[in-house]
Design a protein around this nucleic acid. Sequence first.
DNA 1: CCAGAATGGATAGTCAAGCTCTCCGTTATG
DNA 2: CATAACGGAGAGCTTGACTATCCATTCTGG
Lengths: 212, 212
Amino acid sequence: MRMAELSAGSGVPVATVKYYLREGLLPPGERTSPNQARYSADHVQRLRLIKALTEVGGLPLASVGAVLAAIDGDATPHETMGVVQQELAGAPPEVSDEAAEWASVLLHDLALRHGWKWHPKENRAVGNLIAALATAKELGHEKLAERLDEYFALALRVAELDVEVVMGLTSFDKIIEAGLVATVLGDRIFTGLRHLAQEQVSRDVLGRPPGS
Amino acid sequence: MRMAELSAGSGVPVATVKYYLREGLLPPGERTSPNQARYSADHVQRLRLIKALTEVGGLPLASVGAVLAAIDGDATPHETMGVVQQELAGAPPEVSDEAAEWASVLLHDLALRHGWKWHPKENRAVGNLIAALATAKELGHEKLAERLDEYFALALRVAELDVEVVMGLTSFDKIIEAGLVATVLGDRIFTGLRHLAQEQVSRDVLGRPPGS
DNA sequence: CCAGAATGGATAGTCAAGCTCTCCGTTATG
DNA sequence: CATAACGGAGAGCTTGACTATCCATTCTGG
């Protein structure tokens, strides 16, 4: 297919497709002559994926590029998902050293209780987690962390479900993309469900507004 | 305290504090003369909150402004948390009508099974949820939605925990801010825990990289 | 075959968000 | 009373993500 069709099929404007090609987010089409190219259904899917990652996942294009490079590369699924998580996490904001230390200890305890390990240097998910906990403490809401074990137990159940969903797929080479989609969209979906549930649960506790 | 101290105490540069004052994110200080003002510890806390919402929560300043206006207003806690959720959700991206319809039906079924109701028009959390599910379908990963009930059950447990944590606070007028912090930071914390757990669970399933 | 539309490629322009810088006249302070 | 800080307003800057304009090919329908 040609540019116009690629654009129509993906819902991405021609100018933007060209921009993604320039940025290397979209692989070049197959050349049919020195200055003409042909695109495939894979290109359409790739564009849809880019749209999902930016619009739904809220990822910056640079992160999308890193993620796409990872899934195109020859790393193991585990390594690839590591890249996905790094990019999804983004750069952790700065927090005060004492709050960060407090959060680190909390997490370290948690890890000990569950016999888990990670490499703090190379794991931005941990960095973000520490930053979020530390920020809560700095705001005077360190009580949030008291139930960390319970939150963690539930997160573990969610993660087991995530892995089950991804592994229950037919095509093996689709597993990496499925993992990516499950992670990025899964975060949004679960957060949405949580908010919905919060609304319903808090309706009983906080009471409905007088006017309704 | 004066500007310099406010800036130092919150970690926000003077120029940025002035900018927030201009934008109405930070209430003006108490006047001591026609062109001098004095700030309080509340201003420091407010700045810290703004920082948390933008840096950790990833909210645009406009949303932060809406949220702060809501918690400063005289709405009920339930209404205020509604505003928080609307702003947190952001504008849902566009999806195809058929995918949106499919997702709507899924959610509607879910709601029926649990006897829940909501007002679709005024609930962006629902809009985002639908968009995320619809996007998964458009990408050919509609299997993600097969376990929606299980995800939902876990989200419900998380939400119950959220409400418990917020209600277990001493000061009543801090409950709204605590709800805000619990929602914004809570999302990040839970997502971080989920990623951590995914890493550990998938390590067993996908196998460790050959080199380690 | 050929006029007009589409294409690939490069460069420049646009727009919003979120600051940051510079002045300036006033006010506080050692 | 010299000098540092302040408040207020405006302009400027940076980044990210496009969008628009050209132009020299290339395709395509009549």
